[in-house]
Design a protein around this nucleic acid. Sequence first.
DNA 1: GTGCATGTTACGAG
DNA 2: ACTCGTAACATGCA
Length: 244
Amino acid sequence: MPEGPNLIMLKEKLQPFKGRQVTAANGYAKNVDPSMLNGNTLSDIKTWGKHLLLVFEDFSLRIHMGLFGSYKINRPVKKNAALHLQFGDEEINFSIVKVQVINQPLDEVYDWSADIMSQKWDADKAIQKLKEKPGLMICDALLDQGIFAGSGNIIKVESLFRAGIHPESLCGNIPADKLKELSNEVIAFSREFLKYGKTHHLGDRLQAYGREECPRNHVAFHKRDTGKTKRLTFYCDICQVLYS
DNA sequence: GTGCATGTTACGAG
DNA sequence: ACTCGTAACATGCA
């Protein structure tokens, strides 16, 4: 369930739990003793990229869903959850997630301006980071959570297609205005992802990811693992310019 | 039943 | 020390 927009959806679904007290907690997750949560009030819910942040008075919990992670709200789980949180008569269950306790103020831990879903997103800073890594392939940069926190493989594929940039282009060789265009597409598509994802119509909006042919010229998409990250990339080598 | 996936990290080998 | 390949993760889906 993993890209930035999915985390915003999750945050919205968890709003009813805000201000409520944990009445029971358990789970097999490492790095946390769930019993420490007992009696604590969930004061806020934040996200940074793909991190879900449950804020309690004296600490926060970072929850990362990874690729296989899932959650259930007030619905039965098949097996013991990695983290089960009971709030009176309501409950949240997370499966296959990584949990970490954060004892510092979140503002000291997170640079909100790197989060593509944040109001504080700063495109110029991201572009500066790209320029500082001239040898990095842009397909890898779009998965780098330090640069585009919250971007995943779908956002990568779609924003590269929309900006007309070949995934194996090197950051240092892409013109500044194309980098700006790419950054704009990342943000625009992420908003679209959020809007249509809520109603399960994201698939209708995908122009490249999972498609067989380019919607512009009907040539078959290339479909290969690219970059150091070796993640599946759909691209059209007519529409998408290689800056190598 | 099989295979694949919106992610990340840990580990061993070289 | 660094970088690469691989596995792993108590899932969900087509």
